[in-house]
Amino acid sequence: MEKSEDDELERLKREKMKEIMGKKQGSEFPESPLRITDSNFQNIVDEYPIIVVDFWAEWCSACKPMSPLIERMAEKYSGKIVFGKLNIDKNPKITNRFQITSIPTLLFLKNGSAIDKVIGTISPKQLEQKLKKYLD
């Protein structure tokens, strides 16, 4: 297949995924992590079927290597999974709601419900294995 055919196939897959998941056809999946806050959390959860939230803080040295991984995965899984970053120091309501006591923590939500959590750093391979499990 040529490059343009591959691009068209990917676009059609994304549209079909949105349709299957019952989301608005015009709703775009971001290619980079969303900035999630206490005030926009519910709107984001309501808009996208599968979300991975990275709970982090500026002072957290273990959180730093997770940031580029989350960026790469957001781009790679655009149209299928939305990634977000939530600073725990600035957003205590959501942090407390999900009982986040250690960072980094990745929280996986599907249709608004927490379905999995990873505490600590994770390799790209481990993260991809988890993501693929939720796409089936």
Rank of each mutant, 00 (worst) to 15 (best):
E2D: 13
E2V: 01
K3Q: 08
K3H: 06
K3V: 04
K3N: 02
S4V: 04
E5V: 02
D6V: 04
D7G: 05
E10M: 07
E10Y: 09
R11F: 06
K13L: 12
R14Y: 06
E15H: 12
E15C: 13
K18T: 04
K18I: 02
E19V: 02
E19Q: 11
E19P: 01
I20A: 09
M21F: 15
G22A: 02
G22K: 08
K23Y: 05
K24T: 11
Q25Y: 10
Q25W: 08
G26F: 08
G26W: 11
S27K: 12
F29L: 02
P30C: 00
E31S: 08
S32C: 06
L34K: 11
L34S: 09
R35T: 12
R35K: 11
R35P: 00
R35M: 07
R35H: 11
T37Q: 10
T37R: 11
N40I: 03
F41E: 02
F41V: 00
Q42G: 01
Q42I: 02
N43D: 05
I44M: 02
V45S: 10
D46A: 03
E47R: 01
P49E: 06
I50P: 01
I50G: 00
I51T: 03
I51N: 02
I51G: 03
V52W: 09
V53R: 04
D54N: 03
F55L: 06
S61G: 06
C63W: 05
C63F: 04
C63K: 05
K64S: 12
P65W: 14
P65N: 09
M66Y: 13
S67E: 14
S67K: 12
S67N: 09
S67L: 05
P68T: 07
P68G: 10
L69F: 07
E71W: 01
E71G: 12
R72P: 03
M73L: 13
M73E: 06
A74L: 00
A74D: 00
A74P: 00
A74T: 03
K76G: 01
I81H: 00
F83S: 04
F83I: 02
F83N: 04
G84F: 10
K85R: 14
K85A: 12
L86A: 13
N87P: 14
K90V: 00
K90D: 15
N96T: 09
N96E: 10
R97Q: 15
F98D: 07
Q99I: 04
I100K: 03
T101D: 07
T101Y: 04
T101Q: 05
T101M: 07
T101L: 09
S102Q: 14
I103P: 13
P104M: 05
T105W: 05
L106A: 01
L106P: 05
L107H: 01
L109V: 07
L109S: 10
N111M: 14
G112F: 13
G112R: 15
S113K: 15
A114D: 14
I115H: 07
D116Y: 15
K117D: 09
K117N: 12
K117E: 15
V118A: 11
V118S: 10
G120H: 11
G120T: 08
I122M: 13
I122N: 11
I122H: 13
P124L: 06
P124I: 07
P124A: 12
K125V: 05
K125Q: 13
Q126I: 05
Q126S: 14
L127D: 00
L127Q: 00
E128W: 02
E128A: 12
K130W: 09
K132T: 09
K132R: 08
K132H: 12
Y134N: 03
Y134C: 00
D136Q: 10
